[in-house]
Amino acid sequence: MKGMSIIVKKVAQLIAGFVFLYGIYIIAHGHLTPGGGFAGGALLAGAYILSILAYGSDYLKLKEEQTESSLSESISILLILMLAVAGMLMGIKVFFNNFLPKGTIGELISAGAIPLYNIFIGIEVASALLTIFLALIIYKEEIEE
């Protein structure tokens, strides 16, 4: 894949970082404003997909990125499960227990373990979407070859 024209490339260069940062913002404020892990994760994946689409990438590099993203997907799901089981081990045996202190409503650091779940879900969604995208694009590459 060659990538697109210089116009798209330059815009992608300028924008991708900010899209990524906005994704982080949506994840970090998931317990305060609409949004959260899924929406933010979609933005994180969008930033990567934007750069890959604009710049193009050769087949081998895409393969490598796919293994990495599927690995990070598995790890983040395991982390979510571990958080859930940690709630089960702490005190009363409750699966998905919110065991951290709650804080005051409206602050950034509040709502106990929910921001942690949001962060891991964000990583998971980002890497899952990236994996799906790469899986589809790799087959397209194979067809063209």
Partner: peptide
């Protein structure tokens, strides 16, 4: 509240995502 039935879901789920890593 001392029942362990969530294990029926947790254990296969954890195994499913351990397999791609290990």
């Amino acid at each position: 509240m001392d029942s362990l039935i969530p294990l029926f879901v947790i254990i296969p789920l954890a195994t499913a995502f351990l397999i791609p890593i290990i």
